[in-house]
Design a protein around this nucleic acid. Sequence first.
DNA 1: TCAGTGATTAGG
DNA 2: CTAATCACTGAG
Length: 188
Amino acid sequence: MFSKCGKRMKTGSLTEIVKPGQRISREFYMRDVLDVAPDLIGKNLVVRHNDGNCFRYHLTEVEAYRGTEDKACHASKGKTSRTSVMFGNGGHLYVYLIYGMYWMLNIVTGTAGEPQAALIRGIDDICGPGRITKKLGIDRSFYGEDLVTSERIWLEETGMKPCFKTGPRIGIEYAGAHWKSVPWRYFC
DNA sequence: TCAGTGATTAGG
DNA sequence: CTAATCACTGAG
């Protein structure tokens, strides 16, 4: 799959007109996470700070967490106050604190009732989900933020699709042999 | 290799 | 209420 300015392209079940700089719309996120996660690679994450300045970061690494069956997905234990946003429509942020120190940034995908999310693991030269949120200033207040309408965070089309690899997800030893091994990590 | 750190969750 | 867990990181 390769997108160019103004060119018609097919992304999973979604066909759309894509232009560099254009904010990504709801339909992009409302597809299955296994389609959305790889499509996130090469997109721009835009963060607008309080001083009005916007910073853009290329997404370089993403992981997919898919449904109640996936033992590595927080939704596997059912809907709780923490995971409730994952049970809604795609395009919103699922942000949570881990180890008392690090905020994890996830993009909810799919449609309401099918809990899924993509964990942002790498942007530009920064590797590691905890380092990313520290650098970008992402915290609890971003929980549930809508990437389609937010004034402070969103995704933009870049018109580029870097090559990427796939592999098992990181840090989910507890999930069992099967879910530990599925190649749902996408990285440059 | 391992401590730090605290929200979240299940269970009593 | 308690206790265990945790999609991580940085120091040694």
